[in-house]
Design a binder for these strands. Sequence first.
DNA 1: TTAGATATACTCAATTTGAGCATATTTCTT
DNA 2: AAGAAATATGCTCAAATTGAGTATATCTAA
Lengths: 333, 333
Amino acid sequence: MTDEVPRILTVQRAAHSLATPAQRGEVEAWADSPVALPFGPFDPNEHRTLELGLHNWVEQQTGLDLGYVEQLYTFGDRYRDPREQAGGPRLVSVGYIALVRQVPLSGAGEAEWRNWYDFFPWEDWREGRPAIVDQAIRPRLQNWIGRIGDDDERQTYQERLSIAFGAQSAPWDFERVLERYELLYEAEMIGEALRDAQIRAAISGRPAPQADAEMQATAELLGTPMALDNRRVLATALGRIRGKLKYRPVVFDLLPPTFTLLQLQRVVEALGGVRLHKQNFRRLVINGGLVEPTGKHDSQSRGRPAELFRLRREVLSERPASGVGLPAARIIG
Amino acid sequence: MTDEVPRILTVQRAAHSLATPAQRGEVEAWADSPVALPFGPFDPNEHRTLELGLHNWVEQQTGLDLGYVEQLYTFGDRYRDPREQAGGPRLVSVGYIALVRQVPLSGAGEAEWRNWYDFFPWEDWREGRPAIVDQAIRPRLQNWIGRIGDDDERQTYQERLSIAFGAQSAPWDFERVLERYELLYEAEMIGEALRDAQIRAAISGRPAPQADAEMQATAELLGTPMALDNRRVLATALGRIRGKLKYRPVVFDLLPPTFTLLQLQRVVEALGGVRLHKQNFRRLVINGGLVEPTGKHDSQSRGRPAELFRLRREVLSERPASGVGLPAARIIG
DNA sequence: TTAGATATACTCAATTTGAGCATATTTCTT
DNA sequence: AAGAAATATGCTCAAATTGAGTATATCTAA
C-alpha cells in the first residue's frame, strides 16, 4: 500500500504463449494487454516445492524477497489462453498470494506497483457506493439478462445477479469479487471478453464479431484489462483476502513493525473497500488482543500524536476469532 | 455420514507409481497402505476443466455422481511419492472436496466408506478430550522436541506444539488439523513417516532405519495409514471443512431435504468433533434464518416427535454471517 | 490565539451469547 | 395403567459484544 491505495505487483507480459509461432504472428495483432501478474514456470528439477519455485522466479522478475505466501487456487480450464490449441498442451497455473510492504523494484520483469482498484473500479466503496454500479453495470447486466431466451436460464442469471451485485433482499457482499467479475465477463462487458472473442474468431477462421463503440466504452469504464485470465485470478485473490481479513490477522504484513491504529484501519479499509467506524475499530483490535501499545508516539501527524502499536505475537497461537456462522454455537465441555 | 460417524470415500490403491518397474519390485515390499483417496489422472484432451475431469473418474471408480465440489489445495512437493526419482517427473495433485450423502457404491475402484476419525483419532472430542492426547501424543512430542539440539529450532518446535495441540495460553483449535498431523509426521509418530523413511533408505541404498516396537505401537495408536501423502491431504480437507462450517451453510449436502434440528446438530458435531449446546444451537439456526419449519414431524424417534425443517434457499444469496475477526467492525455508510 | 485536525476516553442502548430451568409429548418398563 | 426415560421445545436471565454517539485531549497551521 501507498497512502490509502492498495497495490498489486504487475510485470510486463513476456512474449510467451502456447500458440505456435505461425498462429502467434496472426493473433498477436489482437493486442493482448501487457499488464500481467508475476508468473513463471515450475521446474521440478530445480524446485523442491511449488512454493520454492515461486520465491525463485519472483525474486528474478521483481527483485522481491517474499515472506509468507499462501496458495490461492489452481486454474486449469481450457482456453485460459485463447490461443491454446485443441488437442495441445494445457496451461495450468497454481496461484499464490503474498502480502508485502511496498519496496523499490528491480529485476528482469519491468515490475510495477498498480492500484488494484484500477482493475475493479466497482469494488471500492470507501467514498460511498461507486456511481458506476448503478449507472453502467446494473442496467447493462439487467438488459443482457433480459435478452436471454430460455426462461430457466434467465432465472438463473437473475439470481446470480442478485447474489453478486446485491438486491433488496441481499446486500452487497464484499467478498463476492469473483462472482461479480465472472458475470461481467460473461456479459461481455469486460475488455478481456471482447478480446477473447476476437481471438477465438481469428483462430477458428470465423468472421470477427464486431464490438460496437458502446461496448468498447463500457469495457473502458470497467477497468484496465490484463493478460490472459490474469484479472480473473486477481479477482479470486481479492475475494480471498477480504474473506481472510475477518478471521485472521493478515494485514500486518503490509504495515511497518509499529504503526498507529489509524494506519492499521486504513489498510483494512483499503483491502475491504469500505469505511469503518473509528472508535469501534480501536476497541475491537485492542480488546481483541490483536495489538499492544509500545508507549511511543507518532510525531508526523497533523493533530494529536497517535500512539504506536505493535502486533501481539501471541495472537498467532491464540484462537483469533471464532466467526459467527454455524457453530459459534457454544462448545460444551 | 451414517448415524454419528462422518465418513470419507476411499478406494483401493491401484498399482500406480512413478518409480521404474525395477524399483517398484524392490520397494513394493514396504507395504504401502492400500487405503487411498479417490484419485485419477487429468487428461487435457478429454476434459475441458479440472473439475469435469474429477467428476468423470470419480464416477468411474465409485459410481458416484458428485454435486457441488470445491477445490482444496494443490500438492506439488518433491517426494510426495517417496519412490519418485531425483530428476524424474513430479507428481502434482489438485485436491477437491465434495460433500455427498452416503449412497451405495459401485465402480472399478473397490470404493468404501470409512470413519474419518480412524485416520485422526485425536480429532474427535465429542466424548470429551481423547485420552490419547495426554497419554501418548503430548509426552512423546515433548520428548522429541526436548532432544533437539539447536536452541532456536527447539524453541520454534515448542511454539508449534503449543499452537497445534494447545497450551495454557492457547486452547485446542479444532481447525488446525493439518498442523497437528504435520508435527506428528515430523516426529515420526505416524505410520507413513516410518514407511517413507524405509522407502527412502531402500532407494538410496542406505541401511534401513530400525523402527523399534514402541514406535510401531505408537504409530498404530495414531490411526490407519494411507497411501502416499493421502492422509496429509485428508487432514487439509478436514481443517478446511471445519473452517467453512463457521460461516457457510455447508453441511446441508450431507442431510436429506428435510431433517430435524437434532440431525443437523449431529452432523455439525461430527464434522467439528465437538458437542454443542442444544437449545442455543436451535436458536442460532432458526433465528439466523438458516432453516425454516415444514410443519411436518418426524415419527421415528424415541421421545416427543421433532419437527422437520428444510434449508432456506434464500440463505445462499444472503450474507451468511459476518465473522468476528477484524472488520466485523461496523461498516459505515 | 484560535481554528482545524486528529487521537482517545467514555457512555448507553440494542443485540447476541452462554447457561440453564421448565414444560410438552412421546415410547418403554413394570 | 402408571411411572420412568427420552426427546423436543419454550423461556429466562445475566454477561458480553456491538452500534452509534458525545466529550475531551493534544497536536499543527494560520
